[in-house]
Write a protein that binds this DNA or RNA. Structure first.
Length: 585
RNA sequence: GCUCCAGUAGCUCAGCUGGAUAGAGCAACUGCCUUCUAAGCAGUUGGUCGCAGGUUCGAGUCCUGCCUGGGGCGCCA
């Protein structure tokens, strides 16, 4: 199924060449959905932009384009308005044909990527021996959604969990493990750390209070780096415990991710340094091996170094990230590497990538993308914390959302005199609660900070997950009431688009492809949210104005098709946000 | 000191390569359930787009300076 926008762009290009000659070949027709539906469905702003180049006034240019524009099969006759806007309304018959194509397609007529890429989405990335907390929420949810969109578009996506499973803190943790759980290293499956946060805090407390403990910790770091078997075993026990805890969260959120932690790159670190040296980039500075950066200065105004090997011979996260970039390009053969991390790491990535580029590791076709996001704040605008000032555990946050969704649901059931099974209540609370958390996060432009509010995300009205889930439920309600089998709706029955709300809904349904293309390119899931919210609004307007089951044929079947397409679009769109739908709620 | 991001309605936020009277949601107020779940729909009220210049036929959007908030800045990740 061909996108309307794509078709129109082609026609505009032909008209531009026909009107002004071959030198306008390839000119962007500046075709966008109209700023106001009263004016048009689509508008082209190209006439204004060509004014200077062609030395004519924009209205005259617009008139000439329109004279050469062949769109009679899709649109009403184009009109020129204002300073030179070319306005297009699509025809109901065209809409009907497109909807039909959508109806009979198993992916709603949405195109796959013409050139599928190998793409890594690096997201979530918690630290071993620490619990996932609110700081991991956005990366996990946004990264998953981006991966889902790219997968749906047909790209080969590798979801990578770059967990923090290496570093000096393991000396402390392993030392504490030996001290507090000595049996863990000798007895199989003897370890059950339970609360990892507590374990970490206790280890830290011991480290801070005891000089002898600190010394043993330092020795453990050396033992770990030199591959001491016993120490590695302790390390892997800690990793395994953490994995179990992480997996519970990922299961709850329905997120798939492949672990490839920092330790994976350990064997590659020495060659990072030697390669940089061979490339002539490496400089020794105060005993450390560094690459001086271009465009980054320190407090004195001198070039800032990127340290790739510390003066004690150890490596740091810049080295690991360099090794990762190189590996992902050379071994994974990636075309696009997407890092979903907080905005605070923007400098770090800019620095690492600069060095990788200067080392010649990044071919021109490879795109390195940082997908930054703002911090999660409480309703007071400060960093989101528990009442006692602790970091909010992700598990607690999700449980709280589910509990609140349940309280809402139970209050409603009581109010409406409904009785539902415990299983139903659990299922709905869980889906609504988690959907609310995900949607609230995804629906904001990720670059700004995010004020976390249970009350707002779980609100039963407005731009929230429950609103959209409810729109979907309404369609399923129609199908239940009328005993409708959406799979076998009369494909021969004509689509009738007469009511304003039917037309508006139809147009909205056909714009899904444009939104997906935008998200694929710009990696802003909030645009998908915005679209789904508007689609839901348009459906609710349609639902309010147009009776479906009571309508006469062929209107009845036509409206059923519209309802079904809306539901399928919502289901697919929400699934790309990592949100499942409900049949009833 | 340098640097990155943000500043749009009372609150939370959209605003896509600059384009027509700046949009939602919440909150407030008014209507609409004998009809597919009213978790809905229709409507009213509400904005010097941080400030000041500049570029442009046209600026919330681009440039410069300033103010405010948040982050980052050599051996943590």
């Amino acid at each position: 199924m061909k996108s309307t926008l794509t078709t129109l762009k082609t026609r505009f290009n032909q008209a531009l060449v026909a009107a002004f000659g071959a030198e306008l070949e390839g000119t962007d027709p500046m075709l966008v959905p109209a700023s106001n539906p009263k004016f048009a469905d689509y508008q082209s702003n190209v006439a204004m932009s060509l004014s200077k180049r062609l030395g004519q006034n924009p209205r005259a240019i617009a008139d000439q384009i329109v004279a050469h524009l062949e769109v009679a099969d899709l649109c009403e006759p184009p009109t020129v308005a204002g300073p030179g806007f070319i306005n297009l309304f699509v025809q109901p018959s065209y809409l009907a044909a497109q909807l039909r194509a959508m109806q009979t397609s198993d992916r709603l007529g949405l195109p796959q990527a013409k050139h599928p890429q190998k793409i890594i989405v690096d997201f979530s990335s918690p630290n071993i021996a620490k619990e996932m907390h609110v700081g991991h929420l956005r990366s996990t949810i946004i990264g998953d959604s981006i991966a889902r969109v790219l997968e749906f578009q047909g790209h080969d996506v590798l979801r990578l969990n770059h967990v923090g499973d290496w570093g000096t803190q393991f000396g402390m943790l392993i030392t504490y493990l030996r001290e507090a759980y000595p049996e863990a290293l000798t007895t199989a499956n003897a370890l059950a750390l339970g609360d990892l946060t507590t374990f970490y805090k206790q280890a830290k407390a011991r480290f801070d209070e005891d000089e002898d403990f600190r010394e043993r910790s330092r020795l453990e770091v050396v033992a770990l780096q030199s591959g001491n078997e016993d120490t590695l075993k302790a390390w892997s026990l800690l990793c395994e415990q953490s994995r179990i805890a992480f997996q519970e969260i990922y299961d709850l959120l329905d997120i798939r991710i492949t672990e490839r932690g920092e330790s994976f790159y350990n064997p590659l670190l020495p060659s990072v340094v030697t390669d940089l040296e061979a490339a002539g980039l490496l400089v020794e500075d105060n005993g450390a091996k560094v690459v001086f950066l271009e465009g980054f200065t320190n407090k004195e105004g001198n070039p800032l170094p990127l340290i790739v090997q510390k003066s004690d011979g150890g490596y740091n996260y810049a080295t690991t990230d360099l090794a990762a970039v190189r590996y992902r390009i050379q071994q994974d053969h990636c075309d696009r590497i997407i890092y979903v991390t907080d905005a605070g790491q923007a400098n770090h990535f800019a620095q690492v990538w600069q060095v990788a580029r200067r080392a010649g590791w990044v071919p021109d076709h490879v795109e390195l993308v940082h997908v930054p996001f703002g911090v999660v704040q409480g309703e007071d605008g400060k960093k989101f914390k528990t009442r006692s000032g602790d970091t909010v555990r992700l598990r607690d946050l999700l449980d709280e959302a589910i509990a609140r969704a349940r309280a809402d649901l139970e209050a409603r059931l009581k109010e409406e005199g409904r009785t539902e099974s415990e299983e139903f209540i659990q299922q709905v609370s869980r889906v609504v609660g988690l959907a609310a958390v995900k949607y609230a996060d995804l629906s904001q432009n990720r670059t700004s900070n995010y004020i976390f509010s249970y009350d707002k995300m779980l609100a039963l009205q407005g731009n929230t997950a429950p609103y959209m889930l409810y729109a979907y439920v309404r369609v399923q309600g129609i199908s239940r009431k009328g005993g409708i089998d959406f799979e076998h709706l009369g494909a021969d029955s004509p689509l009738v688009l007469e009511d304003e709300t039917e037309l508006t809904l139809a147009k909205s349904l056909l714009q899904f492809d444009e939104i997906l293309a935008a998200v694929e390119a710009d990696l802003f899931p909030n645009r998908l949210c915005q679209y789904l919210f508007e689609l839901s609004q348009k459906f609710n307007q349609f639902y309010d104005r147009c009776p479906v089951l009571q309508a006469e044929e062929p209107l009845r079947t036509s409206r059923l098709v519209l309802a079904d397409l809306t539901a399928r679009t919502l289901k697919l769109g929400l699934s790309l946000l990592g949100i499942p739908v409900l049949e009833r709620m």
